[in-house]
């Protein structure tokens, strides 16, 4: 009986969030764009039209019945490469070392998880504890924020070399200050609430208050922010790929596809356009989704 009501409430919760998304036209459009790529990513795990790395066709073909999006300068099927390219971003991370160990969750996802973990911990400590904690943490964040993002990526990669983990680290470090600032301002707001006083008068530990009393109430804005950050991360991965220092082969990388095709821009313009569009639609989709959701949530609060 009890289990049933719980199950029902979970279903209810799911429907609530779905209807929240559907209530906003912006969020609906965004989620469709994101879902499109997610579905392609899952399909690519089992099937792509052709081998993504094999030069099976003539070079620089336009779209045709065999190659829906045409072929690139090496005669590879662009659609297969686009499909395969979703995996490292969204679905899998390749660990360094022997044996090609792969863990689930794309580089963009882990990067954002990393920056959230780092940022939330710093932000909650700064915001809730205040005083010296706040001063020191904010000073560190200020220093991190002062780095232009791409310069920081370049520095990290210049220092540590290429690789999935390095990209995750770079995304985590560059994302953390933004998350921390948000978490800090939320914590500073929430800590003035009486229920925090109540917890303090119960003698709860600082960590309990930060993670059990404050965090659950800050999770809404943080999740929306995280969603936006997945967009930024894909943006960053694309940029790094474009600069030739992104995710290493053999998996195709959208940014790198743009970069390679750019050199042949006079002979084959479509080869540039497809991966560029792919990145743009995925990032815009995530942005629209997060934006619509945020708007709907604040309206809900009002």
């Amino acid at each position: 009986m009890k289990a049933k009501t719980k199950k029902k409430s979970r279903l209810q919760k799911f429907w609530d969030s779905v209807s929240l998304i559907l209530a906003s036209r912006v969020a609906t459009v965004g989620s469709i764009m994101v879902l499109f790529w997610l579905v392609l990513a899952f399909i690519s795990l089992f099937w792509t039209p052709y081998d993504y790395n094999a030069s099976d066709f003539l070079q620089n073909l336009g779209p045709n019945p065999q190659n829906w999006l045409g072929t690139d300068h090496l005669g590879r099927d662009i659609f297969s490469r686009l499909m395969k390219g979703t995996q490292v971003v969204l679905l899998k991370t390749r660990l360094p070392g022997e044996g090609n160990i792969i863990i689930p969750g794309g580089v963009a996802i882990w990067g954002v998880i990393g920056s959230m973990a780092l940022g939330v911990t710093m932000g909650l400590n700064a915001g809730y504890r205040g005083g010296w904690w706040d001063q020191v943490i904010m000073q560190i964040l200020d220093a991190l924020i002062a780095f232009p993002r791409i310069v920081l990526y370049l520095v990290v990669i210049a220092a540590l070399g290429q690789g999935d983990l390095v990209v995750i680290l770079a995304i985590s470090i560059t994302g953390a200050p933004g998350v921390a600032r948000l978490a800090r301002s939320l914590a500073m707001d929430i800590k003035t609430r009486d229920y925090i006083r109540a917890a303090e008068t119960r003698g709860e530990s600082v960590w309990y208050i930060m993670f059990k009393e404050i965090l659950p109430n800050a999770s809404g804005p943080l999740l929306v922010d995280g969603m936006l950050r997945v967009g930024y991360a894909i943006f960053a991965i694309g940029t790094l790929g474009f600069l030739g220092i992104g995710l290493p082969p053999p998996d195709p990388d959208w940014g790198n596809m743009v970069n390679e095709a750019r050199r042949n821009i006079f002979s084959n313009q479509l080869a540039v356009i497809w991966p560029a569009l792919a990145i743009a639609t995925l990032v815009i989709g995530l942005n629209l989704f997060a934006d619509g959701l945020r708007e709907e949530m604040t309206r809900y609060q009002k």
Binding site: R193, D194, Y195, R197, A198, T201, R202, G203, N217
Partner: peptide, 26 residues
């Protein structure tokens, strides 16, 4: 309060002013 014993803490409790913030919404 952080240096007080639990026996004192539990004997001293407080009721707050603002109904909208007295309870944790989560």
């Amino acid at each position: 309060i952080s240096t007080r014993g639990e026996d004192v803490i539990k004997e001293l409790q407080m009721v707050f002013q603002n109904p909208d913030s007295t309870m944790n919404p989560s």
